[in-house]
Protein backbone atom coordinates (compact mmCIF):
# COMPACT_ATOMS: atom_id res chain seq x y z
CA UNK A 1 0.00 0.00 0.00
CA UNK A 2 1.52 3.38 -0.95
CA UNK A 3 1.78 6.32 1.42
CA UNK A 4 -0.79 8.24 -0.61
CA UNK A 5 -3.22 5.36 -0.25
CA UNK A 6 -2.98 5.14 3.52
CA UNK A 7 -3.73 8.84 3.81
CA UNK A 8 -7.14 8.37 2.19
CA UNK A 9 -8.14 4.79 2.98
CA UNK A 10 -8.26 5.04 6.79
CA UNK A 11 -11.00 7.65 6.69
CA UNK A 12 -12.92 5.75 4.03
CA UNK A 13 -12.69 2.47 5.90
CA UNK A 14 -13.59 4.09 9.23
CA UNK A 15 -16.59 5.70 7.55
CA UNK A 16 -17.60 2.30 6.22
CA UNK A 17 -17.19 0.84 9.71
CA UNK A 18 -19.50 3.54 11.11
CA UNK A 19 -22.05 2.89 8.36
CA UNK A 20 -22.01 -0.89 8.85
CA UNK A 21 -22.23 -0.78 12.64
CA UNK A 22 -25.00 1.79 12.77
CA UNK A 23 -27.08 0.09 10.08
CA UNK A 24 -26.73 -3.37 11.64
CA UNK A 25 -26.92 -1.99 15.15
CA UNK A 26 -30.27 -0.38 14.42
CA UNK A 27 -31.54 -3.39 12.52
CA UNK A 28 -30.67 -5.95 15.19
CA UNK A 29 -31.96 -3.73 17.98
CA UNK A 30 -35.20 -3.17 16.06
CA UNK A 31 -35.63 -6.93 15.68
CA UNK A 32 -34.97 -7.48 19.39
CA UNK A 33 -37.46 -4.72 20.25
CA UNK A 34 -40.20 -6.30 18.13
CA UNK A 35 -39.54 -9.84 19.38
CA UNK A 36 -39.50 -8.72 23.00
CA UNK A 37 -42.89 -7.04 22.58
CA UNK A 38 -44.28 -9.94 20.56
CA UNK A 39 -44.00 -12.37 23.49
CA UNK A 40 -46.43 -10.64 25.87
CA UNK A 41 -48.63 -9.57 22.94
CA UNK A 42 -48.97 -13.22 21.97
CA UNK A 43 -50.21 -14.03 25.46
CA UNK A 44 -52.64 -11.11 25.41
CA UNK A 45 -54.16 -12.04 22.05
CA UNK A 46 -53.92 -15.81 21.93
CA UNK A 47 -54.79 -16.86 25.45
CA UNK A 48 -58.32 -16.55 26.70
CA UNK A 49 -57.66 -14.66 29.91
CA UNK A 50 -60.05 -11.75 29.38
CA UNK A 51 -57.39 -9.06 29.52
CA UNK A 52 -58.62 -5.67 28.33
CA UNK A 53 -56.70 -2.81 26.76
CA UNK A 54 -57.66 -0.69 29.76
CA UNK A 55 -55.83 -3.01 32.16
CA UNK A 56 -52.68 -2.87 30.04
CA UNK A 57 -52.66 0.90 29.66
CA UNK A 58 -53.32 1.44 33.37
CA UNK A 59 -50.40 -0.84 34.24
CA UNK A 60 -48.18 0.75 31.60
CA UNK A 61 -48.90 4.26 32.88
CA UNK A 62 -47.98 3.26 36.43
CA UNK A 63 -44.68 1.79 35.21
CA UNK A 64 -43.93 4.61 32.76
CA UNK A 65 -44.55 7.26 35.42
CA UNK A 66 -41.78 5.67 37.49
CA UNK A 67 -39.25 5.11 34.72
CA UNK A 68 -39.76 7.46 31.78
CA UNK A 69 -37.07 9.89 32.96
CA UNK A 70 -34.52 7.07 32.85
CA UNK A 71 -35.42 6.04 29.30
CA UNK A 72 -33.85 9.24 28.05
CA UNK A 73 -31.25 9.97 30.70
CA UNK A 74 -29.41 6.64 30.52
CA UNK A 75 -28.67 6.69 26.76
CA UNK A 76 -27.49 10.31 27.01
CA UNK A 77 -25.30 9.48 30.02
CA UNK A 78 -23.63 6.43 28.48
CA UNK A 79 -23.13 7.78 24.95
CA UNK A 80 -19.80 9.56 25.58
CA UNK A 81 -18.33 6.41 27.15
CA UNK A 82 -19.74 3.87 24.71
CA UNK A 83 -19.71 5.59 21.34
CA UNK A 84 -22.44 5.09 18.71
CA UNK A 85 -21.74 1.46 17.70
CA UNK A 86 -21.62 0.08 21.24
CA UNK A 87 -24.82 1.94 22.20
CA UNK A 88 -26.87 -0.58 20.21
CA UNK A 89 -25.08 -3.43 21.94
CA UNK A 90 -25.26 -2.05 25.44
CA UNK A 91 -28.99 -1.35 25.57
CA UNK A 92 -29.75 -4.82 24.23
CA UNK A 93 -27.42 -6.74 26.50
CA UNK A 94 -28.07 -4.72 29.65
CA UNK A 95 -26.10 -4.59 32.90
CA UNK A 96 -24.02 -1.78 31.44
CA UNK A 97 -22.42 -0.31 34.54
CA UNK A 98 -21.60 -3.55 36.30
CA UNK A 99 -20.57 -5.70 33.35
CA UNK A 100 -20.02 -3.97 30.02
CA UNK A 101 -18.07 -0.91 31.15
CA UNK A 102 -15.64 -2.93 33.32
CA UNK A 103 -15.09 -5.33 30.41
CA UNK A 104 -14.34 -2.44 28.06
CA UNK A 105 -11.89 -0.87 30.52
CA UNK A 106 -10.05 -4.16 31.09
CA UNK A 107 -9.65 -4.64 27.34
CA UNK A 108 -8.35 -1.11 26.80
CA UNK A 109 -5.83 -1.64 29.58
CA UNK A 110 -4.80 -5.02 28.13
CA UNK A 111 -3.69 -3.52 24.82
CA UNK A 112 -2.72 -0.10 26.16
CA UNK A 113 -5.41 1.83 24.28
CA UNK A 114 -6.70 5.14 25.61
CA UNK A 115 -10.44 5.80 25.91
CA UNK A 116 -11.58 8.41 23.42
CA UNK A 117 -9.21 7.21 20.67
CA UNK A 118 -10.21 4.97 17.76
CA UNK A 119 -8.03 2.20 19.20
CA UNK A 120 -9.89 2.56 22.48
CA UNK A 121 -13.27 2.50 20.76
CA UNK A 122 -12.42 -0.68 18.86
CA UNK A 123 -11.02 -2.39 21.95
CA UNK A 124 -14.21 -1.54 23.86
CA UNK A 125 -16.37 -2.82 21.03
CA UNK A 126 -14.52 -6.15 20.88
CA UNK A 127 -14.63 -6.44 24.66
CA UNK A 128 -18.40 -5.93 24.65
CA UNK A 129 -18.71 -8.59 21.93
CA UNK A 130 -16.71 -10.94 24.17
CA UNK A 131 -18.86 -10.06 27.18
CA UNK A 132 -22.01 -10.58 25.09
CA UNK A 133 -20.94 -14.07 24.04
CA UNK A 134 -20.10 -15.11 27.60
CA UNK A 135 -23.39 -13.68 28.82
CA UNK A 136 -25.53 -15.27 26.10
CA UNK A 137 -23.97 -18.68 26.69
CA UNK A 138 -24.23 -18.54 30.48
CA UNK A 139 -27.84 -17.35 30.37
CA UNK A 140 -28.92 -20.09 27.94
CA UNK A 141 -26.98 -22.81 29.72
CA UNK A 142 -27.40 -21.94 33.39
CA UNK A 143 -30.79 -20.26 33.36
CA UNK A 144 -32.44 -21.68 30.24
CA UNK A 145 -31.53 -25.32 30.80
CA UNK A 146 -30.15 -25.77 34.32
CA UNK A 147 -32.43 -23.20 35.99
CA UNK A 148 -35.62 -24.54 34.43
CA UNK A 149 -34.65 -28.04 35.56
CA UNK A 150 -33.73 -26.78 39.04
CA UNK A 151 -37.12 -25.11 39.53
CA UNK A 152 -38.85 -28.33 38.47
CA UNK A 153 -37.17 -30.35 41.25
CA UNK A 154 -37.33 -27.83 44.11
CA UNK A 155 -40.19 -28.68 46.53
CA UNK A 156 -43.30 -26.62 45.83
CA UNK A 157 -43.54 -25.16 49.33
CA UNK A 158 -40.10 -23.58 48.89
CA UNK A 159 -41.04 -22.34 45.42
CA UNK A 160 -44.23 -20.80 46.81
CA UNK A 161 -42.37 -18.96 49.57
CA UNK A 162 -39.72 -17.79 47.13
CA UNK A 163 -42.37 -16.47 44.78
CA UNK A 164 -44.19 -14.68 47.57
CA UNK A 165 -41.19 -12.89 49.08
CA UNK A 166 -38.81 -12.49 46.15
CA UNK A 167 -39.82 -8.90 45.49
CA UNK A 168 -39.21 -7.57 49.03
CA UNK A 169 -35.94 -9.55 49.03
CA UNK A 170 -34.88 -7.74 45.85
CA UNK A 171 -36.08 -4.25 46.66
CA UNK A 172 -34.31 -3.94 50.03
CA UNK A 173 -30.93 -4.76 48.51
CA UNK A 174 -31.48 -2.65 45.39
CA UNK A 175 -32.42 0.38 47.45
CA UNK A 176 -29.31 0.12 49.64
CA UNK A 177 -27.11 -0.41 46.57
CA UNK A 178 -28.60 2.63 44.83
CA UNK A 179 -28.25 4.89 47.85
CA UNK A 180 -24.62 3.88 48.41
CA UNK A 181 -23.50 4.16 44.77
CA UNK A 182 -25.35 7.41 44.09
CA UNK A 183 -23.85 9.16 47.13
CA UNK A 184 -26.69 11.70 47.20
CA UNK A 185 -27.69 11.84 50.88
CA UNK A 186 -29.91 14.87 50.41
CA UNK A 187 -31.85 13.27 47.53
CA UNK A 188 -32.12 10.04 49.53
CA UNK A 189 -33.66 11.77 52.54
CA UNK A 190 -36.09 13.68 50.33
CA UNK A 191 -37.10 10.48 48.50
CA UNK A 192 -37.71 8.48 51.68
CA UNK A 193 -39.72 11.25 53.34
CA UNK A 194 -41.79 11.88 50.21
CA UNK A 195 -42.41 8.15 49.69
CA UNK A 196 -43.53 7.65 53.30
CA UNK A 197 -45.83 10.69 53.18
CA UNK A 198 -47.36 9.77 49.83
CA UNK A 199 -47.87 6.08 50.67
CA UNK A 200 -49.01 6.34 54.27
CA UNK A 201 -50.73 9.75 54.37
CA UNK A 202 -51.74 10.91 50.87
CA UNK A 203 -52.90 7.59 49.39
CA UNK A 204 -55.11 6.60 52.35
CA UNK A 205 -56.70 10.06 52.11
CA UNK A 206 -57.05 10.03 48.31
CA UNK A 207 -57.44 6.36 47.26
CA UNK A 208 -57.54 7.36 43.58
CA UNK A 209 -53.80 8.05 43.83
CA UNK A 210 -52.97 4.46 44.78
CA UNK A 211 -52.19 3.32 41.23
CA UNK A 212 -49.95 6.19 40.14
CA UNK A 213 -48.41 6.53 43.65
CA UNK A 214 -44.86 5.67 42.59
CA UNK A 215 -45.04 8.10 39.70
CA UNK A 216 -46.23 10.79 42.12
CA UNK A 217 -43.30 10.04 44.44
CA UNK A 218 -40.83 10.23 41.54
CA UNK A 219 -42.22 13.53 40.36
CA UNK A 220 -42.32 15.20 43.79
CA UNK A 221 -38.85 13.86 44.67
CA UNK A 222 -37.35 15.16 41.42
CA UNK A 223 -38.87 18.61 41.84
CA UNK A 224 -37.93 18.91 45.53
CA UNK A 225 -34.43 17.52 44.93
CA UNK A 226 -33.91 20.18 42.30
CA UNK A 227 -35.15 23.11 44.34
CA UNK A 228 -33.57 21.94 47.59
CA UNK A 229 -30.22 21.07 46.02
CA UNK A 230 -27.09 22.26 47.71
CA UNK A 231 -26.06 25.47 45.92
CA UNK A 232 -22.57 25.06 47.25
CA UNK A 233 -21.96 21.80 45.40
CA UNK A 234 -23.72 23.00 42.27
CA UNK A 235 -21.22 25.86 42.08
CA UNK A 236 -18.34 23.39 42.02
CA UNK A 237 -20.24 20.86 39.95
CA UNK A 238 -18.27 21.64 36.81
CA UNK A 239 -15.20 19.97 38.26
CA UNK A 240 -17.13 17.10 39.82
CA UNK A 241 -19.29 15.90 36.96
CA UNK A 242 -16.76 13.48 35.57
Amino acid sequence: MSAADTAVTPNASLAEFDRTTSRWGQLTMGVALILSLAAPLYLVFFTDLGITAGMIWTAYLAVAAAFFVLWFVEPITYYPVLGPAAMYQAFMIGNIANKLLPSALVAQAAIGAKAGTKRGEFAALMAICGAAMVHVISMLLFVGILGTWLVSIIPTDIVDVARLYIFPAIIGAVLVQLVVTMKQPRVTVIAVVVAALVLFVLVPAVPALAKPATGVVVLITAVLAWFLRSRKTSATATTLVN
Binding site: A66, F67, V69, L70, V73, E74, I76, T77, P80, F167, P168, I171, G172, V174, L175, L178, V179, M182, Q184, V187, T188, I190, A191, V192, V194, A195, A196, V198, L199, F200, A213, T214, V217, V218, I220, T221, A222, L224, A225, W226, R229, S234, A237, T238, V241
Partner: peptide, 27 residues
Amino acid sequence: RRVNPALMAIVPAAALIGAFASLGIAE
Protein backbone atom coordinates in the same frame (compact mmCIF):
# COMPACT_ATOMS: atom_id res chain seq x y z
CA ARG B 1 -24.53 17.46 26.33
CA ARG B 2 -24.73 21.09 27.29
CA VAL B 3 -27.77 20.35 29.45
CA ASN B 4 -27.12 21.80 32.88
CA PRO B 5 -24.74 19.32 34.57
CA ALA B 6 -26.38 19.84 37.95
CA LEU B 7 -29.73 18.95 36.38
CA MET B 8 -28.26 15.81 34.80
CA ALA B 9 -26.75 14.81 38.14
CA ILE B 10 -29.77 15.44 40.37
CA VAL B 11 -32.92 14.61 38.40
CA PRO B 12 -31.92 11.06 37.31
CA ALA B 13 -30.69 10.25 40.81
CA ALA B 14 -33.93 11.62 42.27
CA ALA B 15 -36.04 9.63 39.80
CA LEU B 16 -34.18 6.39 40.53
CA ILE B 17 -34.05 6.71 44.29
CA GLY B 18 -37.63 8.03 44.36
CA ALA B 19 -38.97 5.05 42.41
CA PHE B 20 -37.16 2.40 44.45
CA ALA B 21 -37.70 4.12 47.80
CA SER B 22 -41.42 4.21 47.02
CA LEU B 23 -41.48 0.52 46.09
CA GLY B 24 -39.40 -0.45 49.12
CA ILE B 25 -41.53 1.51 51.56
CA ALA B 26 -44.70 0.11 49.97
CA GLU B 27 -43.45 -3.39 50.93
